[in-house]
């Protein structure tokens, strides 16, 4: 899909221009975002507040470049605004901001998105609305206890209109997830908490699309999509490298990355 490559290219340009961090986790979820915004979710870019839209919440707010890029590419706001990312007086701050058209919720501190998403999903149930809530989580942020409060909550209240997507790229801030606080077996954990779970290759568009095409997967159960991904996906020298949680590409690295993505430097 063209969109995923463009998301990666725009995210790379943004972090390079702003000397910003967190490109690795933006690249790992680019394919998920491309399918969500191109196929899965009901959204209207010219009406970001359309009442019947599906709600998307980025809980891993530090990876916002990929979401800003997706929204701009889909026409929620002008593509040129991406050039202001991280600059003085820009609304495109380096942790996702709800002042940007199409963004439902500002995050940055981890462990906030899923409880908020539970509130939205509960509101849809109580108000008898058919829109769904999608929450993008990082693997590292599942260390936060607040997520597990929400993971208990969602099945209790039969929030089958809620989809938690885990961008399981296996690397967190200071090391491999396995070596910091191991999440394995993650699918079993969610199943034990009474969620319906699917595990997919988070870079395979067909797998992503078919997993999310029909919801819910099981009546009354919230949905957890564990997307196995590669941190830094799409740029050879960034893939699976902790360094690119922090480092910002210089001009030569940016150009090489763009060439690998078949984009104009």
């Amino acid at each position: 899909m063209v969109l995923a490559g463009e998301i990666r290219a725009e995210a790379l340009r943004m972090v390079a221009r702003a000397s910003a961090s967190h490109i690795g986790g933006a690249l790992s979820m680019a394919d998920l975002l491309a399918v969500l915004y191109d196929e899965t979710m009901r959204v209207k870019p010219d009406q970001p507040e359309w009442p019947d839209r599906d709600r998307f919440i980025l809980s891993k707010g530090h990876s916002c470049t990929a979401v800003y890029a997706t929204l701009a590419l889909r026409g929620f706001f002008p593509l040129a605004e991406l050039e202001t990312y991280g600059q003085d007086n820009s609304r495109l701050m380096s942790h996702v901001s709800h002042k940007v058209p199409g963004i439902e919720f500002s995050t940055g501190s981890l462990g906030h998105g899923l409880p908020f998403g539970c509130g939205k999903a509960l509101a849809a149930k109580r108000l008898k609305k058919s829109w769904r809530t999608f929450v993008m989580l990082s693997d590292g942020e599942l260390d936060e206890g607040s997520n597990w409060e929400a993971i208990l909550f969602a099945p209790q209240h039969r929030l089958d209109n809620l989809v938690a997507i885990v961008d399981y790229n296996k690397i967190q801030s200071l090391g491999n997830v396995k070596e910091v606080l191991d999440l394995h077996p993650l699918a079993d954990k969610f199943r034990a908490f009474k969620w319906a779970v699917k595990e997919i290759d988070g870079h395979d568009h067909e797998e992503i699309h078919s997993a999310l095409a029909v919801l819910p997967w099981e009546p009354s159960k919230p949905n957890c999509l564990i997307a196995h991904t590669v941190k830094g996906k799409g740029v050879s020298f960034m893939e699976n490298q902790l360094l690119w949680h922090y480092r910002s590409p210089g001009i030569d690295q940016l150009n090489q990355a763009l060439r690998e993505l078949n984009c104009e430097p």
Binding site: E104, F105, P115, G119, K120, S146
Partner: peptide, 26 residues
């Protein structure tokens, strides 16, 4: 009953859920 909830002993989630509900008009 449709406007009441016991969130359990989980105040972080309770407050996040409250914010989510509030964002939809409650």
């Amino acid at each position: 009953p449709d406007r009441f909830l016991n969130a359990g002993i989980a105040e972080q989630n309770m407050t996040g859920v409250a914010a989510g509900l509030a964002s939809e008009g409650y």
